[in-house]
Amino acid sequence: MMDQQLISTSFTINRKEYKVSVAPWSSLLDVMRETLDLTGTKKGCDHGQCGACTVLINGKRVLSCLTLAVMKEGAEITTIEGIAEDGKLHPLQQAFIDHDAFQCGYCTPGQICSAIGMLQEGKAQSRAEVKELMSGNLCRCGANTNIIDAIMEIKEGAAHA
């Protein structure tokens, strides 16, 4: 790699500031996993087809495998490592446990980040709409029914709150 090509880039991940020197061709996913030791976010396909690498950037759910780190100067990034507060699981994390919403767990960080983004977007009302708007996260273990159950519990809870 040609050193002169490294570009200094700053962003925050889970409210912590990072300043990194990255090659233009490094994906945000690779920088987080390989350089910053934030391995919670998973690489499934590396081509935008599975959703395992979903993170929240400036509040929006996006795919970190199709994001160049250099393009995220100043961004606020949230990963699965950043959603529990004061040692207490995020309600979606707890709901995933309660509903047995995973087997191998590989898709789970992406599922949960995606679900947080989806609930913030506020576009899904019915279960069918939740399923449609969660279709960007594949689960090879087939835990989908329980995943949607877990999300529906939190969604309805929020609706009644």
Partner: peptide, 9 residues
């Protein structure tokens, strides 16, 4: 088209 994440990008 695509998925919610991709449409956000």
């Amino acid at each position: 088209g695509a998925s919610a994440q991709i449409r956000n990008m």
